[in-house]
Design a binder for these strands. Structure first.
Lengths: 188, 188
DNA sequence: ATAATTATTTATCATTTGTTAAAGGATATA
DNA sequence: TATATCCTTTAACAAATGATAAATAATTAT
């Protein structure tokens, strides 16, 4: 059984038939560091399960600056949601920060399975719920504290992740410049 | 037929039986200006359709300041999503800024209808998709421009709404203080 | 209408953050 | 090892924003 199937089975109980049909649709792909899994203007046709590596989910804003929605690490699901739902070109990119192995299912296959199996429809609902609540939390986090507090909080809650991302990327995630982040770090 | 039912029928085609069962579950409520439809620490048990009025969806951040997710106006769906999904107390409030009339369906009723009718399950999927993509857009908007540009943009795209909300609320929505917004307005 | 309350603007000063440039470290490549 | 490249820090200055208080305008209540 694929890791993706195993992962979702622990979240939503899938009946045997639904599970095996889901598992059959899973494909695997590998990427080198610095490659786009979803590039600008492409259509995101899949939901991905991240087996290995780390991914930066971001866009370039009106001032030409990089804004990071979030990072994804092992054992997480991701997709460029707006593009995935409407199957139209995305402005939101998925870039590998390390060598990456993913498993994925296409929207078409997932839609077909949703129509066929109620348990997979429930899985789909769960994945959308997580996408929505994660964005709500991300927005709240960004609006909740001054940047120094956001930095301290990030270090506390993501000590492992700190070792895998650059301070430049962290600054963008926190919504400040790298110079500003250096100042915050120096001020301790 | 309730306005809520009519509204969703235009988005997702519901078979006759699903539609009438959905319609039977809809309830109505009225609120005066300045009342909470969802108050802090309460559990949000419903999805609402806003028939009349305007609502502020917000929370109080770690520094004690009000942060506005968004405003809702007539003919829109809303719920305090995290609380609704997990049925746990919310930190996100829904406050009426005008007299309000809503129609709503409970989570329990909706879940039952989802299990029974695939078309309603699709409706549920649609509503979650919108919640997620709306938050993605809101986040992007907030991170895309300097505050003066965000203000100009808001005025352009929400000229009707401008007449119904206070500048203090608008400032909070834009992520700045009211004093700062006054400066931006004066600088024109 | 008058008073009281609330909303908005203006002014002043302090703080934060951005910008630019340069310097120092670290890492990768030949 | 030496060189080049990338990442991070530091410094100096400018711009934006916050905090506070006071003044003005608008709204609500008596």
């Amino acid at each position: 059984m694929n890791e993706f199937t195993n992962y979702v089975s622990k979240i939503i109980e899938l009946d045997t038939k639904a599970q095996s049909e889901f598992d059959l649709k899973i494909k695997t792909a590998e990427f080198k560091k610095g490659q786009f899994i979803v590039s600008e203007q492409s259509i995101c046709r899949n939901i991905y399960y991240l087996k290995l590596g780390i991914i930066k989910f971001y866009f370039i804003n009106a001032e030409g600056k990089e804004v990071i929605f979030r990072f994804f690490t092992e054992q997480s699901l991701f997709t460029s949601l707006e593009s995935f739902i409407l199957q139209k070109p995305t402005a939101h990119m998925m870039l590998t920060l390390e060598p990456v192995i993913v498993e994925y299912i296409s929207k078409q296959d997932l839609d077909e399975l949703c129509a066929k199996h109620h348990s997979i429809s429930k899985l789909n609902t769960y994945m959308l719920s997580m996408a929505a609540t994660n964005m709500i939390r991300r927005f709240s986090e960004l609006m909740s504290d001054r940047s120094s507090a956001r930095y301290n909080n990030f270090v506390l809650e993501n000590s492992q992740l700190m070792q895998r991302i650059s301070l430049g990327d962290l600054a963008n995630y926190l919504g400040i410049t790298q110079v500003s982040l250096s100042r915050i770090r120096a001020a301790k």
